[in-house]
Design a protein around this nucleic acid. Structure first.
Length: 402
DNA sequence: TCTGGGGTCCTAGGACCC
DNA sequence: TCTGGGGTCCTAGGACCC
């Protein structure tokens, strides 16, 4: 049976949601109507464009580039900080509205959903449902979406990306040739900045040219990825809409430091703060981790990572930190200027999968300490401990400079 | 490049075992 | 030792997504 899939993509999500929030709070200008961006903090060396208004796009400002670049392209561009809690709130409102149409919704990201409408169409068409959703989101929530209408996820996602904003596009099998094949290969989902030049070198420039390339040649050059890109270029995708909430496979946090750090004691201090944050998140999921991974980025933007297995799965801050500290010391070469440090845990299992006997012998001091720290986090807000440690580092740096 | 932070999945090579 | 072949597990690094 043919599946009926919608892909919903919020137009300029972070910027639109910020605009609505500001209007609500009495701000007079709708920042969607002026050249505006949502950006990181340049003083913290995270000054990149996270979202742009349509007007900012007219100046050729792109997501991901530096705010510095954006300002060169448009000197009067207005810059607003990013506020995740607001995005989460609007994302949830959208999800609640969409639940009126199907309960098979995959939240692909904070601003994108896939809907499997196969069982929920009754006497109407997929297109009519798309129109109704678009209208209701605009009227009830105050922002616009693009909707892709198709028979699989890949084609729905490609369709929602066509022209923006506030548009509905179909991409059925018989439309692939006209609507998708003329596009440059860079537009195909999962073809990024490394693969596109390789394809161009093979004289493959459009999605159509990719679709007509021998699949086996692509497999010999790109392995599994080659098979996937061939299938995608031909509109083939059998993946399911994953509407059941999935447990995370790994949890990590990382931070770009306000200045390069060359002092391992300082790195350890930050790592402890990050360990606390990651372990806290792990405990909130009621999960345990078996693998710890430390990531470093040097000032010249080279990434390094070391990982190691723990003897027993844990969510204990100190156990995770001790392992992380070992990995850091293995990896860090004296004098290396570090720009970013991160920690992630992998091989997660649910806590109740572990036999109780494993806990019985355990010293519960650490668990008590963790739960005390969790309370601090709950009271003063998520990440408060990490912020304290980072402030410590900033003060340290100031002291050094004077 | 004045270049974030959170993820998932894949691959190549080494260790180890039979 | 002039050392096979297949399988599994592990690690480091990379590609891609939003």
């Amino acid at each position: 049976m043919e599946r009926q899939i919608l892909h919903i993509d919020v137009n300029n999500a972070f910027l639109s949601w910020t605009a609505i929030d500001m209007l609500k709070k009495g701000y007079e200008i709708d920042i969607r109507t002026i050249p505006a961006i949502i950006g990181g903090d340049e003083t913290k060396r995270s000054g990149i464009v996270l979202a742009k208004s349509t007007k900012a796009k007219e100046f050729d400002i792109c997501t991901g580039e530096t705010i510095y670049q954006a300002r060169i392209k448009c000197p009067n561009v207005k810059i607003f900080p990013s506020k995740y809690s607001i995005y989460k709130e609007y994302s949830n409102k959208l999800y609640e509205l969409l639940l009126n149409y199907t309960d098979e919704i995959e939240r692909y990201s904070i601003d994108e959903c896939f809907l499997d409408m196969t069982k929920f169409l009754l006497n109407t068409t997929l297109m009519e449902k798309a129109k109704e959703i678009s209208k209701r989101v605009k009227e009830e929530l105050g922002f616009t979406v693009n909707i892709g209408v198709a028979h699989n996820k890949l084609l729905a996602k490609m369709a929602s990306d066509f022209t923006k904003p506030d548009r509905i596009h179909t991409l059925f099998e018989n439309e692939i040739k006209d609507k998708m094949w003329p596009l440059p290969v860079s537009e195909l989902f999962m073809l990024g900045r490394k693969t596109v030049p390789k394809l161009n070198n093979m004289k493959i420039r459009t999605i159509g040219e990719l679709a007509r390339t021998d699949k086996n040649i692509l497999i010999s050059k790109f392995g599994k990825h080659g098979a996937q890109m061939w299938e995608y270029s031909n509109g083939i995708d059998n993946s399911e809409v994953k509407y059941k909430k999935e447990k995370p496979k790994g949890i990590g946090n990382s931070t770009t430091l306000p200045v390069d750090v060359r002092n391992i004691e300082k790195l350890e201090e930050i790592l402890l703060a990050i360990s606390e944050q990651v372990a806290y998140r792990l405990r909130k999921y009621n999960m345990l981790a078996n693998v710890v991974n430390v990531q470093l980025r040097s000032s010249d933007f080279k990434d390094f990572s070391h990982q190691g297995k723990l003897e027993n799965s844990t969510s204990n801050t100190k156990e995770i930190y001790n392992k992380a500290k070992k990995l850091l010391n293995e990896m860090y070469k004296i004098g290396m200027p570090i720009r970013l440090i991160g920690l992630r845990v992998d091989n997660l299992i649910e806590k109740n999968e572990v036999q109780l006997s494993l806990f019985a012998s355990k010293d519960d001091k650490q668990e008590k300490l963790d739960s005390a720290l969790d309370k601090i986090n709950q009271k003063y807000g998520y990440g408060s401990i990490k912020r304290a440690a980072k402030m410590n580092v900033e003060n340290f740096i100031k002291l050094k400079e004077t």
